[in-house]
């Protein structure tokens, strides 16, 4: 039922003139995708530096909170650009993306990374007065940082894999994959 609703919504989006225009515009689509990928250096670049500091392996002579707080703004600017360009990429190819097992996995992982970031942030704030100057932060902070790195690398993989047609709907594949991708019977994948 949910898959039918999602697909109907995607088909409605895909039927819009701007969606088709974006998909078919070589330069516009490719520049949006390039911006999405290059902004990884701003968003994940800052996030990785923060995580490496929290793991106690980078910039250990700078207080941990200083790294986290000063890099927060550029990181969030990068995140905003990634969300906007990501939504535009979805808008350009909504039907196939909605039924992509990788896109679905990416959304789940993004939610997981968001929850982890929220817990991580609170942990950092709570412990700030005690270990801020330590080169290596406490274990629970290091676990959060390791989890963050792992989740974001998995998100890059899922994002990269959307472009591959390994598990597209309509292929001769297991019922589980069709279920995971949310394939709706009798509807062309594209």
């Amino acid at each position: 039922m949910l898959n039918e609703v999602l697909l109907t919504f995607a088909q409605w989006l895909g039927a819009q003139q701007w969606s088709t225009g974006l998909h078919e515009s070589f330069y516009m689509y490719n520049w949006i995708e390039t911006t999405h990928v290059l902004t990884l250096t701003v968003f994940l670049g800052m996030l990785f530096v923060i995580d490496l500091r929290m793991l106690g392996v980078a910039l250990t002579d700078v207080p941990a909170s200083k790294i986290a707080e000063r890099l927060d703004l550029p990181m969030m600017i990068g995140f905003t650009v990634m969300i906007i360009t990501g939504l535009l990429l979805f808008y350009a190819i909504p039907v196939r993306t909605t039924q992509s097992v990788w896109f679905r996995l990416k959304v789940i992982l993004l939610i997981a990374a968001g929850i982890n970031a929220w817990i991580f942030r609170n942990r950092m704030k709570a412990a700030k007065p005690t270990w801020d100057l330590d080169p290596v932060p406490p274990k629970n902070v290091r676990i959060g940082a390791g989890l963050s790195l792992t989740l974001w690398i998995a998100i890059i993989f899922a994002g990269r894999a959307i472009a591959y047609d390994w598990f597209d709907c309509g292929k001769d594949q297991s019922a589980f994959l069709n279920w995971a991708a949310g394939c709706v019977a009798d509807v062309a994948a594209h």
Binding site: T41, G45, R160
Partner: peptide, 21 residues
């Protein structure tokens, strides 16, 4: 191949991050 691309992109993010800071 996709895993290599992921490693490539993740290290691009890190390289970009160190260059940018």
């Amino acid at each position: 191949y996709a895993m290599a691309q992921t490693v490539h992109l993740a290290s691009m993010a890190l390289l970009g991050g160190t260059v940018l800071i």
